[in-house]
């Protein structure tokens, strides 16, 4: 029981990661692919924050009367990753808008058909 509760976070993270991965490789709609990538990314954030958590710990802000703080280093990494993630999402969505204008569709198989590439 303790093993299951202690690893539940990691298993849900892996499940979310695989759901995102599945969306990216199995769906042809470009907007949905980007949502899938974001789900994948979110699961990685959760993995890092899960690792940084400590039992009976508190938010890493110094205050009298608190001794145990959660690990601040993964928080910093993920703070950076969230902002960079939004920047890349914006770039991906801009590409989707351009693809829609150039091809008239955002479905991958139709784009391939127009390019005769598949």
């Amino acid at each position: 029981m303790e093993f299951i509760l202690g690893h539940y976070n990691y298993w849900v993270v892996i499940f979310l990661m695989m759901v995102g991965f599945y969306t990216v490789i199995s769906r042809g709609n470009l907007v949905k692919k980007i949502v899938g990538l974001n789900v994948f990314q979110g699961s990685v954030f959760l993995l890092y924050i899960s690792i940084s958590t400590i039992e009976k710990g508190t938010v890493p802000i110094l205050k009298e009367g608190f001794e145990v703080y959660s690990n601040p280093l993964p928080h910093v990494l993920i703070l950076t990753a969230i902002v960079v993630g939004v920047a890349t999402t914006a770039l991906g969505l801009a590409l989707v808008v351009r693809i829609k204008e150039a091809y008239g569709t955002i479905e991958e198989d139709e784009i391939h058909r127009q390019d005769h590439s598949l």
Partner: peptide, 14 residues
């Protein structure tokens, strides 16, 4: 999970 800074960045930006 005690990550307040990350939480409000995610709420605002994500």
């Amino acid at each position: 999970m005690d990550a307040a800074d990350v939480a409000f960045t995610e709420a605002a930006v994500g």
